[in-house]
């Protein structure tokens, strides 16, 4: 059992991830954007893995990663992205360079998610 914080502005992405993770008996917290995500995250040290989207309103995923690295240097982060909103750009590489433990392109299969999550938690 692990605790996840999912930060994504798309409700269907959040709910899908929740369903998948809960099926594997994980606990899931949600936030609809980076600002809210950091608020939920607060000072908690009990989040095993933060799954964050990159492109979001209010605050971008990239900022979230930078902020989390500041607050909790050892925080495990999985960056997910469906590509640029206006530009055909791969933000996942950027996320990786900023310190995301793993990245996952949307859409993904259940197996992708479980494998990547396991990989992150094992680090």
């Amino acid at each position: 059992m692990a605790r996840f914080l999912i930060i994504d502005d798309e409700k269907m992405v959040r709910s899908t991830l929740r369903k998948v993770l809960e099926k594997f008996n994980h606990e899931v917290l949600e936030a609809t954007n980076g600002k809210e995500g950091l608020k939920v995250y607060g000072d908690r040290k009990d989040i095993d893995l933060v799954i964050t989207d990159i492109i979001m309103p209010e605050m971008e995923g990239v900022e979230v990663i930078l902020e989390l690295r500041k607050r909790t240097p050892g925080q495990k982060i999985l960056a997910i992205s469906g590509g640029g909103r206006t530009k055909n750009q791969d933000y996942l590489k950027t996320a990786e360079q900023l310190g995301a433990n793993a990245t996952l392109s949307k859409p993904f299969s259940v197996n992708d998610v479980i494998a990547t999550v396991r990989e992150c938690l094992a680090q």
Binding site: E10, M12, V13, S15, L17, S81, G82, K106, P107, S109
Partner: peptide, 8 residues
């Protein structure tokens, strides 16, 4: 891609 997440 986002839409495909739940589909898949």
């Amino acid at each position: 891609n986002n839409t495909l997440v739940p589909v898949i």
